[in-house]
C-alpha cells in the first residue's frame, strides 16, 4: 500500500513538473475581437482610429502585442503627415515620449521593409493599464506592445489604442500575439531561432480591422466606386454587415451610382450616394458595425467630394 502511494506521488510529481515545463506555451489565440472606430475631424482632415482589444476567455494566452498594417498601397497618393505624432509611451520617470511621424520613420529608415503611410499613434493614456508603448515597425506596421504589468488577460478588454492619419478607412490586416515565456520554453527551443519563430507565428491570431489607407494617385470615380463595392463585399464576409438585405440594398445603391457616373450624370450619382450615406447612418450599430460604418461612410463621402 505504501509503495503504491509512493509511486502515485512520484507520478504526480513527474506529471506536475512536466506540465510546469510546458505550461509556458499558450494555445494559439482564437477569436480575439479588435474593434475599430473612426472619426473624421473635418477641420483638419485627420481621421482618428480608436481600437479596443478583447481577449476572449477561451484563450489561455495573455496578449502583449498587436500591430496593424499601414503599408502604402501601390500607386497611391502621398499623404500629408502634418500634425501626426507617435506618442511612444510614458517614461518610467514620467512624461510622454513623443516623436513626429518623420522622426519615427527616420528611426527605422535603414531597415524599413516597405513604405508606409503617415500615421500618428498613441498607447492607452490615462488608462489603468500603463506600460504600453507604440511604434512604427520595420515590417510596415504600427504596433502596440505591453510590458510585464500590462498584458491583456483572457476575458479582458483594453481600449484606447489611438491611430491618426489623413488616410481613408480601409480594411487592414491586424495581428495579435500572446506572450510566451521565452525563459521557460522546452529545451528544443533553446537558441533555436527558426523553431522559436515558428512557435511565435503559430500562436498569432490574424484578422482584419479598420485602418488608414491611401486613395489612388490617379483618382478615377468609377475605379474608386468599384473599390468601395469590393470593400463592402469584404465587410459583409467579415461580419461587419450583419444583414444580407441591408448589404444588398447598399450594393444596389453603389451599382446604381456607378452607372450614373459612367453615364456622366454626376449629380444623379451624388444623390444616390447621399442616400447611401443616409442608410449607413441609419444602420450604424444595428446591422453595421463601427468598422462597416466608418469604412462606407468616409469612402463614399470622399467619392462625393470628388465628383
Amino acid at each position: 500500500m505504501i509503495n503504491k502511494r509512493v509511486i502515485f506521488i512520484v507520478l504526480i510529481g513527474i506529471i506536475f513538473s512536466t506540465s510546469l515545463a510546458f505550461a509556458q506555451i499558450p494555445s494559439p489565440l482564437k477569436d480575439v475581437k479588435v474593434t475599430g472606430l473612426v472619426m473624421l475631424d473635418s477641420t483638419t482632415g485627420i481621421y482618428t482610429y480608436n481600437y479596443s482589444i478583447f481577449n476572449p476567455p477561451i484563450n489561455d494566452g495573455k496578449i502583449f502585442h498587436f500591430e496593424i498594417d499601414i503599408t502604402k498601397p501601390l500607386n497611391s497618393q502621398e499623404l500629408n503627415s502634418a500634425g501626426l505624432v507617435i506618442r511612444r509611451g510614458v517614461k518610467a520617470q514620467g512624461g510622454m515620449i513623443i516623436r513626429s511621424f518623420e522622426e519615427e520613420v527616420a528611426r527605422i529608415k535603414e531597415v524599413l521593409q516597405k513604405p508606409v503611410i503617415p500615421v500618428g499613434a498613441q498607447p492607452p493614456f490615462g488608462q489603468p493599464f500603463p506600460g504600453w508603448i507604440t511604434a512604427i515597425t520595420v515590417m510596415g506596421t504600427v504596433s502596440w506592445g505591453g510590458s510585464e504589468q500590462s498584458l491583456i488577460l483572457p476575458n479582458q478588454t483594453f481600449g484606447g489604442f489611438i491611430l491618426t492619419s489623413y488616410g481613408l478607412p480601409g480594411i487592414r490586416d491586424v495581428k495579435i500575439e500572446p506572450d510566451i515565456d521565452i525563459d521557460n520554453l522546452p529545451e528544443q527551443y533553446w537558441e533555436n531561432i527558426e523553431l522559436t519563430k515558428q512557435l511565435e507565428d503559430s500562436l498569432i491570431y490574424q484578422t482584419k480591422t479598420l485602418g488608414p489607407t491611401a486613395p489612388p494617385a490617379d483618382f478615377k470615380p468609377v475605379s474608386f466606386i468599384d473599390y468601395i463595392i469590393s470593400m463592402k463585399h469584404e465587410a459583409f464576409s467579415l461580419g461587419w454587415i450583419t444583414n444580407q438585405g441591408i448589404e444588398q440594398s447598399l450594393d444596389a445603391k453603389l451599382e446604381n451610382a456607378k452607372k450614373k457616373i459612367e453615364q456622366g450624370n454626376k449629380n444623379a450619382a451624388k444623390n444616390i450616394l447621399n442616400a447611401f450615406i443616409n442608410e449607413v447612418e441609419a444602420q450604424k450599430d444595428k446591422h453595421l458595425t463601427s468598422e462597416a460604418y466608418g469604412l462606407l461612410k468616409y469612402n463614399v463621402e470622399y467619392l462625393i467630394g470628388r465628383l
Binding site: 502583449f64 502585442h65 500591430e67 527605422i108 531597415v111 521593409q113 506600460g131 508603448i133 511604434a135 512604427i136 515597425t137 520595420v138 515590417m139 504596433s143 506592445g145 505591453g146 510590458s147 510585464e148 498584458l151 506572450d179 521565452i182 525563459d183 520554453l185 527551443y189 533553446w190 537558441e191 533555436n192 531561432i193 522559436t196 519563430k197 511565435e200
Partner: peptide, 26 residues
C-alpha cells in the same frame, strides 16, 4: 529589465526573442 518590453522593442525592429542565458533578440 522588463523582458516583455524588450520583446516588444525587439519586434519593432523585426526581431524576436530566443531563449538564452540572457535576453537574446534575434
Amino acid at each position: 529589465v522588463d523582458r516583455i518590453a524588450i520583446r516588444e522593442i525587439c519586434k519593432d525592429y523585426g526581431g524576436h526573442l530566443v531563449r538564452e542565458s540572457t535576453i537574446h533578440c534575434e
